[in-house]
C-alpha cells in the first residue's frame, strides 16, 4: 500500500483538497481511461506490449476492457478493412459517452501502405478521431505519449457540459 503523507497544516488540518466539480470529474476521467481492446493487426501487438510487463500501461490507469460498454477510449490499432468497417461503427455506437478514439498507426490514420481495394483509407471516414499516432507500427512509448496527450485534452474540456458533436473528416 502506498503511504500518503498528509499535511495537517494546510486546509484547516484536514486531508482535504478544495477544487471545482469540473476539475475533479476531469481528474477522474483522465486518469482512468479504460481502453477497448481493438487490436486489428500489427499495432495490436504493440498495444498488447504496452499493456504488458515492460511498459506497464496500468500506471496511467489505462486498463483494457473487452466490452465497449465499459470502455472510454477506443484505440483503433491496425488496418481497418472494408469488411470490418461496419463493426467499428457498431462498437463505437455501443460505447458510453464521453468517449474518445485514438487512431494508432499509419493504416488507421490514412490507410498507410495498404493503398488497395480492401482497405478503408483512414478510420476517420467511419468514426471521429481525437488523436492520430504516426508510425508503422508505433512504439509502445508513442501510445503512452498519445494517452498522455489525450488526458490533457480531457482536462481542457468542461466536464459539466455535454461533448460537442465531433465531425467526420
Amino acid at each position: 500500500m502506498a503511504q500518503h503523507k498528509v499535511n495537517y497544516t494546510q486546509n484547516g488540518g484536514l486531508p482535504i483538497a478544495l477544487t471545482s466539480v469540473d476539475k475533479i470529474v476531469n481528474w477522474g476521467r483522465s486518469n482512468s481511461l479504460w481502453a477497448l481492446t481493438y487490436g486489428l493487426a500489427c499495432c495490436g501487438i504493440e498495444m498488447m506490449a504496452s499493456g504488458a510487463s515492460r511498459y506497464d500501461f496500468d500506471r496511467f490507469g489505462t486498463i483494457f476492457r473487452a466490452s465497449p460498454r465499459q470502455a472510454d477510449v477506443m484505440i483503433v490499432a491496425g488496418t481497418l478493412t472494408k469488411k470490418h468497417a461496419e463493426f467499428i461503427k457498431r462498437l463505437y455506437d455501443q460505447m458510453t459517452e464521453p468517449r474518445w478514439v485514438i487512431s494508432m498507426g499509419s493504416c488507421a490514420n490514412t490507410g498507410g501502405m495498404f493503398n488497395t481495394y480492401a482497405t478503408v483509407q483512414g478510420v476517420d471516414r467511419i468514426i471521429p478521431v481525437d488523436l492520430y499516432l504516426p508510425g508503422c507500427a508505433p512504439r509502445p512509448e508513442t501510445l503512452q505519449y498519445g494517452v498522455m496527450l489525450l488526458q490533457k485534452k480531457i482536462r481542457a474540456n468542461h466536464a459539466s457540459k455535454a461533448q460537442k458533436a465531433k465531425r467526420l473528416m
Partner: peptide, 28 residues
C-alpha cells in the same frame, strides 16, 4: 489495385447510405 467504382464507397454506402457520399467525400 485501388478498387473499382463499387469498392470506392462501399463502406460509406453500407454504413451511412448513399446520401453521405457528398459529406464524407472521396477516398484520398
Amino acid at each position: 489495385l485501388q478498387g473499382d467504382e463499387f469498392a470506392a464507397l462501399y463502406e460509406v454506402d453500407k454504413i451511412y447510405g448513399k446520401e453521405a457520399r457528398e459529406e464524407i467525400g472521396p477516398e484520398i
